[in-house]
């Protein structure tokens, strides 16, 4: 087993806490953001911030389902840490003059759908689903996006913040993959049956309908920023590589489903998948605001760029 010792990891997580106040948000370097970069970076940062925030909510749901106290406490910390990342990213936006006053940027429509889904159904999802989707989201969207950002932005404060964020994320992933393996351990047949049963759940189908276009939209955003989509794909392959490094991990049906799906996502020639999904992305953009779920859950308001409140 490549698994890590979860108790030691929890102690490490607790010992590695940092705060927004540890970073000097007024240090020089903000001027390194070019005017050309600014509008696209603003959209990108807003998405990134919201993805962290959404990931946070995922961990909150996982804390409820955790099979033992250590994992429960770990997920409670991860929930807070993802929120911390969102807060730090918002603080960067504030630093770069991308915030409209104190306003939290609006999430895009795909994200809004994901937020709605998470709010309504994530607590009902089995740990297996979230335990597999969250590492994928973390590694693909979060991890990969952060690397892109550091390639394009020269502001040292941004690098300083992301050095800390990436340290946290590597711990999240380490735990994520260990749990993936823990869940792959045991009778495959029962697991496959359970997986199929869960897949039939309309609530999950709704979730898939929100998750799938989100990946494609992020790919489009990355291309918009003038970056190669290969980097995103490389990150997604990493999920397949690390998640599948042990037999237990490979036996987890959710790992199989998500890594296979990842393979399809990075295969642009897979028209059967991309044509309808790209259409979904365009479609969500056209959903009139009045049809969109109007009431946002209050947990999205917990975000702040202020180091001290």
């Amino acid at each position: 087993m490549a698994s890590i010792d979860l108790d030691k990891m929890l102690a490490k997580v607790k010992a590695s806490q940092w705060a927004l106040a540890d970073i000097d948000w007024d240090a020089p370097g903000a001027e390194l953001i070019t005017d050309e970069q600014r509008p696209k970076l603003k959209a990108f940062m807003a998405d990134l911030m919201w993805i962290e925030h959404v990931g946070a909510r995922g961990f909150a749901a996982m804390a409820r389902k955790a099979p033992n106290d250590t994992l429960k406490e770990m997920y409670t910390y991860f929930h807070a840490e993802e929120q911390r990342h969102a807060n730090a990213e918002m603080a960067l936006m504030k630093r770069w003059g991308m915030l409209d006053g104190d306003q939290v940027p609006e999430p895009n429509k795909n994200l809004r759908l994901v937020i709605q889904w998470l709010d309504r159904y994530s607590d009902d999802m089995p740990l297996e689903v979230l335990g597999s989707v969250i590492p994928m989201l973390e590694i693909a969207l979060d991890g990969a996006l952060c690397t892109f950002l550091l390639d394009t932005v020269d502001d040292p404060v941004c690098h300083q913040a992301f050095a800390r964020i990436n340290d946290d994320e590597s711990r999240h992933l380490g735990v994520g993959f260990t749990v993936l393996e823990m869940q792959g351990h045991g009778d495959t047949y029962i697991k496959v049956l359970k997986t199929i049963a869960t897949l039939m759940d309309p609530r999950l189908i709704l979730g898939i309908a929100s998750y799938v276009p989100l990946l494609n939209r992020m790919r489009d955003n990355i291309i918009d920023m003038g970056l190669g989509e290969e980097r995103l794909y490389a990150a997604m392959k990493k999920f397949e590589r690390i998640g599948g490094r042990t037999a237990d991990g490979r036996r987890n049906p959710w790992y199989q489903i998500i890594s296979r799906h990842g393979r399809i996502v990075i295969n642009r020639r897979h028209k059967l998948y991309h044509a309808p999904v790209d259409a979904m992305v365009r479609l969500t953009d056209r959903i009139p605001d009045r049809v969109m779920p109007s009431r946002m859950p209050t947990w999205v308001k917990g975000i702040t760029y202020k180091p001290v409140v």
């Binding site: 106040a21 807070a80 180091p307």
Partner: peptide, 21 residues
């Protein structure tokens, strides 16, 4: 409900990175 990371000179720091004065 965020875990408390530590107490600082001026308040409480929670794991979401915020200091409460």
């Amino acid at each position: 409900t965020w875990p408390i990371a530590k107490l600082s000179e001026n308040g409480i720091r929670t794991a979401d990175g915020v200091e409460h004065e």
